[in-house]
Design a binder for these strands. Structure first.
Lengths: 174, 174
DNA sequence: GACAGTTCTGTCCGATCGGTCAGTTATCGT
DNA sequence: ACGATAACTGACCGATCGGACAGAACTGTC
């Protein structure tokens, strides 16, 4: 039942946003009462946090791996890490859907926003000029969004071209 | 006064989303009563529509220009058009801020969503495989988002690298 | 059948939302 | 000075929101 609720929740969050999805909407989709949702989850935010947890964990790991790196090496590893992450979670679109929603539509959730903000910083914070920042956002949001939309990306194409060829084009290396 | 309201509205929409911004929030930011907002604007949606109107017009023009094109030429012109558009509106960040918000956080506004959906179709609908779709989304959303975040992008860099060099990398041409 | 624990629900609550409206205040031409 | 018009506001409305809570329904054990 918990799983059913999360399935409905993530689908509706993705379609209408976190704020655009009421507990009643989820309950109707599941086929139970609104009160039943709040028996399984302490509140609405908990659903979002729980759905975000797996990818949040992966981002934490990535951040640890990026911590000692600096300069171009850091930027390269950061984008590569995000690409890897999006590929690894591609089968579980619901997680990325939620991440995007959380990032863009629900910025006030600190646990969600904290980790993504730090990831963006790790992506672009160590390079002085602005172009990499653009690249970082494009990589993070673009990939997440396309993945979230259910677009099927050939692994090799995505991995290679974005982590190598795209670097110069997007200004991540000279 | 109308201008003050729109200024506050777009800033708050960008920060907290359309749904995350109440009329009271805007009124407090402007320094007037909530009722005063609704004296100048018939309703909340009108503010969004009015802010979106200029860029909406530009997108319409772009769509007309893209209509007769096909294949790679169409895709190239489409991405170039979006880049041009984002550059042209860079000084008026509020418009793009709102566009992104509308696109991602307020998908039920038909006048807003209709035009962006058609733009995405024009961007990626004419090319068979999936890679260009990814590129299209990345271009549209990535550029809009980075621009929306107030990131300053050197015109030449952005224009040239994204409309020419990035094509092969992102799979828009072989 | 009696019982206990889990699962679920109907009903209610305070808060907040977008929006309405009667009435007040400010502005301005005469 | 005065009336007309525009600008603005406080008070209020119905709807909806997330959430609380007591009790019903279900499940398994003895």
């Amino acid at each position: 039942m918990r799983a059913d609720i999360l399935d409905s929740a993530v689908r509706l969050f993705a379609a209408h946003g976190f704020r655009g999805t009421s507990l009643q909407d989820i309950a109707s989709d599941v086929g139970c009462s609104k009160a039943s949702l709040l028996y399984h989850f302490t509140n609405k935010d908990t659903m979002l946090s729980e759905l975000f947890a797996p990818v949040g964990q992966e981002i934490e790991t990535l951040l640890e791996r990026l911590a000692p790196l600096r300069g171009e090496e850091a930027a390269r590893a950061a984008v590569a890490g995000v690409v890897d992450l999006s590929l690894r979670f591609r089968g579980q679109v619901k997680i990325l859907l939620l991440d995007v929603d959380a990032l863009l539509c629900h910025p006030e959730l600190p646990d969600v926003n904290g980790v993504t903000d730090r990831l963006v910083d790790a992506l672009v914070g160590r390079v002085p000029d602005q172009a990499p920042r653009v690249a970082g956002w494009m990589a993070l949001l673009g990939i997440f969004l396309t993945t979230a939309r259910g677009v099927d990306i050939p692994d090799e194409t995505m991995r290679v071209e974005l982590t190598h060829g795209a670097f110069r084009t997007l200004g991540l290396s000279s």
